[in-house]
Design a protein around this nucleic acid. Structure first.
Length: 452
RNA sequence: GGCGCGAUAGCAAAAUGGUUAUGCAGCGGCCUGCAAAGCCGUAGACGCCAGUUCGAUUCUGGCUCGCGCCUCCA
């Protein structure tokens, strides 16, 4: 029995899918005009684990994560770069996929692009106009009439009156009401545009998700996810569009992940305090980054710093050191084992990967005590379910970067020195290796090494 | 101004109305030529003030501080 914290009710609810044995998930993905940062990594990894856990739990998962490939920032960047929008967005889609792959994120079932669904957007807009939830303004833009949707604000807990009281800038004079948002922008010179019944133009920000989610998952689907910052206005507006157009509930469960922070401030493009995934991976193993993300609960804020990544690295090393030397072939888990059960209960309880990972350490302790290959097998199998511990421990522990020293030769020399009781020489060699971040371990089976 | 979230040991981070979270770091031991890894033991916590309760870190109220959304943002 899986429980999910639903933003709509602000409570954990028992998950029940619309169709037995199947789950439909829509997650708002990236706007592709730059490299992804660690905040994007968090969304990708968290919903990757959600889909993996649902899949593991026996559901057939249909997971859609969209790509926004047309918006103001993309247009601005394309002009700035003197690069076509098509080339710019494709370039960053490729970069995003590279990052996702290195973080162990399984590709979604579908990754639709906004520009491939203009027709779907136009048809919703048409319905909204017919149902008088949208209107054509004097300048040709089409706006959604927020006050026409009585449930507006139900996701984010905002009331229309409070919003009016807020400080808003640059109110578009074409709007009937300052809260209204744009569905379709009439064409402007030097901007990409598409044909529509109301003249050429391009879509507003929110309509693409209403269009694509209904296209791939239907008017009513199970889970809608994204970063906390999308709760308002983006997801609120999606609900307004979809539910007004189709007259049914859009998604049963809304999931929002917490922010990545830097020095207790939200990591964001506008603050400029972001670290791209690419930058971080220059210093840290991608699995360390994934582990770092999953070690915190998905709804909690996650403070980013090198020290915290170092900490995550040491922790993950412990698990791999534990796994070292075991031959693992069978990946079946014995779910009657108390620790396996504890892992499962943690994941069932709103995807508590933090608690689930703590179980991995409890297992590691048992394995180190008893050298149990059954438990080692369990450790690796549980890790695999959430996309961790899948590599050969030797490869993780030794790293894939070339080391300029001949480690094996130096180990032999040291062993010779040790045999001659020349401990000064033995320690000199060990220090030399340590300067290159190579740590030696003398075990009953001989001397082995790993990267620091 | 409106709405919401959080405050856990040196750091990070979960759960929980009474029983060891977990990882790193610390201390004492075992192992080792010495280390490393591992094991055993140990210390250290629930922002402040009230209330409910036999008992609260956990529930309720107030306060303080921090953060987020209300404008593009995962």
């Amino acid at each position: 029995m899986i429980k999910i914290f639903n933003t709509l009710s602000k409570k954990k609810e028992i998950f029940k899918s619309i169709q037995k044995g199947q789950v439909s998930i829509y997650v708002c993905g990236m706007t592709v005009y730059d490299f992804c940062h660690i905040g994007h990594a968090r969304v990708m990894v968290i919903f990757d684990v959600v889909r993996r856990w649902l899949d593991f739990s026996g559901y057939k998962v249909n997971y859609v994560r969209n790509i926004t490939d047309i918006d103001d920032k993309i247009i601005a960047r394309s002009i700035q770069n003197n690069e076509s929008i098509q080339s710019l967005t494709q370039r960053y889609i490729d970069e995003m996929n590279t990052d996702a792959k290195s973080l162990g994120v399984i590709s979604p079932s579908r990754e639709p692009k906004a520009t491939e669904h203009i027709k779907d957007m136009l048809s919703i807009i048409q319905i909204l106009i017919e149902k008088q939830h949208a209107y054509i303004a004097k300048n040709g833009d089409i706006f959604y009439s927020v006050r026409s949707f009585s449930e507006y604000g139900k996701l984010s807990g905002k009331s229309i009156e409070d919003l009016r009281a807020g400080e808003r800038v640059d109110i578009d004079q074409n709007k009937h009401d300052e809260l209204d948002f744009v569905l379709w922008k009439s064409a402007k010179p030097n901007e990409p545009n598409w044909d529509s019944p109301w003249g050429r133009g391009r879509p507003g920000w929110h309509i693409e998700c209403s269009a694509m989610s209904s296209h791939y998952l239907g008017h009513h689907f199970d889970i809608h996810g994204g970063g906390q910052d999308l709760q308002f206005p983006h997801h609120e507006n999606e609900i307004a569009q979809s539910e007004a157009a189709y007259e049914c509930k859009m998604a049963n469960y809304w999931m929002h992940n917490g922010f990545v922070r830097v020095d207790d401030e939200k990591m964001s493009k506008s603050l400029g305090n972001f670290f791209t995934i690419r930058m971080v991976l220059e210093q840290f193993d991608p699995e360390v980054v994934r582990f770092f993300i999953l070690r915190a609960h998905y709804r909690s804020p996650l403070n980013y710093s090198n020290a915290h990544l170092d900490d995550a690295k040491l922790a993950l090393q412990r698990l791999y050191v534990t796994l070292r030397g075991f031959k693992i072939e069978n990946l079946e888990v014995d779910w009657s084992h108390p620790l396996a059960l504890k892992f499962r209960e943690a994941m069932d309880d709103d995807f508590n990967s933090s608690e689930a990972i703590s179980v991995l350490f409890e297992l590691a302790n048992e394995i180190n005590k008893n050298k149990s290959s059954t438990l080692a097998n369990m450790l690796k199998s549980l890790g695999k379910i959430i996309g961790l511990l899948e590599r050969d421990p030797e490869i993780f522990l030794k790293g894939d970067k070339k080391i300029s020293l001949d480690i094996n030769a130096l180990i032999s020399q040291r062993n010779e020195a040790k045999a001659n009781k020349d401990f000064k020489e033995a320690d000199r060699i060990r220090s030399l290796l340590l300067e290159h971040a190579v740590v030696l371990e003398d075990t009953p089976q001989g001397t082995i090494w790993r990267k620091e």
